[in-house]
Amino acid sequence: MLDEEVKNRAEKYIKGMEERLRKIPATSRDKYRKVYDLAWQYTQDARYYLEKGDYVTALVDIVYAEGLLDSILFNENIDLDSQIAKRVFVAGTFDIIHPGHIELLKEASKYGLVYVAVARDKNSEKIKGRKPINNENQRLEVIKSIRYVYDAFLGDENDFLKSVERVRPNVLLLGPDQNADEKKILDELAKRGLKEVKIVRFPQRVIKYEHSSTSSIIQEIVRRYCNDKKES
């Protein structure tokens, strides 16, 4: 009976620690990379010993992990129950990933957990006037792998705001090229019961890199490889 109680306690402790570690903002993970990675490793070790039936060692490992996590929370002044519980909504095509995309998502992660709605193929084509290079499922898989993204999904084909409703964010981050009527968005969201959403706009394109847009990358590929063939 005692073993079962220890097992249940360790299992609950480990699951809670995994959830807390996932909520740490990517910027804080980067800043304390060694500490964060060590906390994650202790957590995984705890799960290993739990599955092996060594519940005491599992508890010892997870206590070490908690101490490491608490050091990050203390130094960063993070309250997991409030600050990190905030949700940030970002939407876009994210066709050919470039530094501009990364900077946008990094900025979003400063406000809380980042949820990304990846544009459907037909909607992207309608807006940009061309088919995306990578289809929607490929683009979604790439976005999911970016460290600043907490969760990602395919957007609604007919109603952009349905994706916002799905996340119910505290912050909606718009990119510099997203021409949206902010007041109209807020008014419509309020009608749908989302009255506390704050819109933040990423100020400008990232210009410190040679190519900070998908269009410029495509143009450069055409210039290098298509024009050369015509000339030859």
Rank of each mutant, 00 (worst) to 15 (best):
S145F: 12
E18P: 01
S212Q: 03
F202P: 00
A39N: 11
Q83C: 03
I72M: 09
E66F: 04
K230Q: 10
T57L: 12
T93R: 02
L38F: 09
Y225V: 05
L113A: 10
R87L: 14
N75K: 13
L189C: 04
I217K: 03
Y48P: 00
R205T: 13
V114H: 06
R147K: 12
R47W: 14
D228N: 10
L186P: 00
H101R: 01
L50N: 07
K144L: 07
E188D: 09
L73M: 02
D61V: 09
K86Q: 12
A108S: 14
L21Y: 07
K184S: 10
L186N: 05
D95M: 03
M17R: 05
I96K: 00
E196N: 05
L59E: 07
E182Y: 10
V6W: 07
Q83S: 06
E18Q: 13
I24N: 00
H211T: 07
L104V: 07
R168A: 11
D61M: 14
A46I: 10
K131E: 11
Q41T: 14
V63A: 08
E182T: 14
F74Q: 04
K195R: 15
V88E: 04
G92N: 05
G67L: 08
A39V: 14
R139N: 01
G129L: 08
E76K: 05
G155Q: 10
N179E: 13
S215D: 09
Y150V: 05
R205A: 11
A91W: 05
V114P: 02
I218E: 02
A119I: 05
G53R: 12
N75L: 15
A85F: 10
L113P: 00
S215E: 14
I102S: 01
D37V: 15
D187L: 14
K131W: 06
I217G: 01
S232V: 14
R130K: 15
K12I: 12
R33N: 03
N8F: 10
S71D: 13
E141I: 07
E4Y: 11
E103M: 09
I199M: 07
I14K: 07
E157L: 06
E231A: 04
R47F: 09
N75M: 13
Y115L: 04
V6R: 11
W40T: 03
E157A: 10
K52R: 11
